[in-house]
């Protein structure tokens, strides 16, 4: 083949680092340029506004709304910053995983359905590299989704409620800047909590050629797992469900911070990423692409 190299302009080209990373950058572009992604982020951003307005309207007769985070909601009226925690606590069980499930579930299956997958692979994107790019984009979407909730919650909270010193769950009081840092930390933990789900979605996505089916399966799985997590009879299994430690982020609102649950959560997410990431890779790297 060396003859071809000297004569034709066509020939082997070396792989460069910037060339290798270009797909990762492009994948982010692709994810965030889509109308669908924008709509999902807009819905997530609307959620804290809705909660904030409802809490504000009910301030005169505080009865402590139902749901998973009554203490947060009560706190919100005292300090707008607490709307961040309230919104994240409301979004984490349903809205965040739903949007992540849509993005991760569609990532490979959607490309297979439209046929663009075959063109990426003959480019050649490399199956492992493409999967890594999809996973990275999924993680970045988790960050963006969490940020969408947290930032609008902060803005809404600041508009509707007073800001200032924050009284933590443990009863201690910390300064506003300190509390803001904790909010950033909590948002980060929430975003990373979704990593396991990204890996699961990616795996499901490699199983089918239909984006809708993969999205539905992933979102359905999130709901099923949370239902299972509610059965005390399943105590032996529950600690291994990827949603089990999601709410442990509230432990970071104590003084001192209580990291036990958070570490367990992050460890569990890492395990899910390892298992389902490998499964996705094993499936995708050997699969016949006939769509």
């Amino acid at each position: 083949m060396s003859q071809a190299e000297t004569v034709l302009v066509a020939g082997r080209r070396p792989q460069t680092t910037s060339g290798f990373l270009a797909l990762f950058r492009n994948e982010l572009h692709l994810t965030f340029r889509r109308m669908r992604t924008k709509v999902l982020l807009a819905i997530l951003a609307a959620l804290p506004i809705l909660i904030g307005v409802i809490v504000k309207l009910n301030t005169d007769s505080p009865r402590g709304g139902g749901g998973g985070a009554p203490s947060f909601i009560a706190q919100t009226t005292q300090n707008g910053l607490f709307l961040v925690f309230t919104a994240l606590a409301v979004a984490l069980p349903v809205f965040l995983p739903m949007t992540v499930g849509v993005v991760a579930g569609d990532s490979v299956a959607g490309e297979a359905a439209t046929g663009t997958l075959r063109y990426l692979l003959v480019a050649p994107a490399g199956r492992t590299r493409l999967l890594a790019a999809k996973f990275t984009a999924g993680l970045v979407f988790c960050l963006a989704a969490t940020a969408a909730v947290a930032v609008t919650a902060l803005a809404t909270g600041a508009t509707l409620f007073p800001l200032g010193e924050v009284t933590l769950i443990s009863g201690d009081t910390i300064g506003f800047t300190d509390a803001l840092l904790r909010a950033v930390l909590v948002a980060g933990v929430v975003a990373v909590s979704l990593a396991g789900l990204v890996a699961i979605g990616l795996f499901v996505s490699t199983l089918t050629g239909s984006g809708i089916a993969a999205m539905a399966a992933t979102v359905g799985l999130v709901i099923t797992v949370q239902i299972l997590d509610a059965f005390p009879q399943l105590d032996a299994v529950r600690p291994f469900l990827f949603t089990h430690y999601w709410m442990s982020f509230s432990d970071l609102l104590r003084e001192p911070m209580y990291w036990d649950g958070v570490w367990k959560d992050l460890g569990l997410q890492a395990a899910y990423v390892a298992v389902f990431g490998s499964a996705a890779w094993a499936r995708f790297s050997s699969r016949d692409i006939s769509a």
Partner: peptide, 13 residues
């Protein structure tokens, strides 16, 4: 641009 970015040997410049 997307299909070109998929090729790791393609020069982004």
């Amino acid at each position: 641009v997307r299909f070109d970015a998929a090729d790791p040997t393609a020069d982004p410049r």
